[in-house]
Computed example of a mutant assay.
Amino acid sequence: MAKPNKKGPTRTVDIFCSKCKNQLFKYRKGGKGALVKCFKERIVEDYTHTACLCPNCGQEFARDTLVRGTPALKMIGGKVTFK
């Protein structure tokens, strides 16, 4: 399978915890669909202290995984929102 584009999209979105509305990431997202996974190389700014845990409320919002051989965070449904 093909790897994700290195440069990635130029549009950035802010990703928030759905429970406490704390900002988690600034991410270069491609397309207009739902946020299912975040490739680690596309994260512009990371506001979390521990991977996959919200720094404010401690809720687990994603799981660490490999997608097409590239490190990524697989989002748990309903745990994050983005604008």
Rank of each mutant, 00 (worst) to 15 (best):
M1G: 15
K3R: 13
P4V: 07
N5T: 08
N5I: 12
K7G: 07
G8K: 01
G8V: 03
G8Y: 02
P9Y: 09
R11Q: 07
R11F: 00
T12N: 00
T12D: 00
V13E: 00
V13S: 01
V13L: 02
D14I: 08
D14K: 15
D14C: 10
F16W: 05
C17F: 08
C17R: 02
S18C: 12
K19A: 10
K19V: 09
K21T: 13
K21F: 09
N22M: 05
N22V: 06
Q23E: 04
Q23R: 14
L24Y: 08
L24Q: 01
F25L: 12
F25S: 03
F25G: 05
K26A: 08
Y27K: 01
Y27P: 00
R28E: 08
R28P: 01
G30R: 11
G31N: 06
K32T: 07
G33S: 14
A34K: 15
L35F: 05
C38W: 00
C38R: 02
F39G: 09
F39T: 04
F39S: 06
E41N: 11
E41A: 12
R42A: 09
V44W: 12
E45L: 15
D46S: 14
D46C: 15
Y47Q: 06
Y47E: 01
Y47I: 03
T48H: 02
H49N: 13
H49T: 14
T50Y: 06
T50C: 05
A51Y: 03
C52D: 10
N56H: 12
C57T: 12
G58E: 08
Q59T: 15
E60W: 05
E60A: 15
F61H: 00
A62I: 06
A62E: 10
R63H: 10
R63M: 11
D64T: 14
L66A: 06
L66C: 05
R68M: 13
G69L: 04
T70D: 04
P71R: 01
L73I: 02
K74I: 04
K74M: 10
M75E: 02
M75L: 15
I76A: 08
V80S: 02
V80A: 05
T81Q: 07
F82P: 01
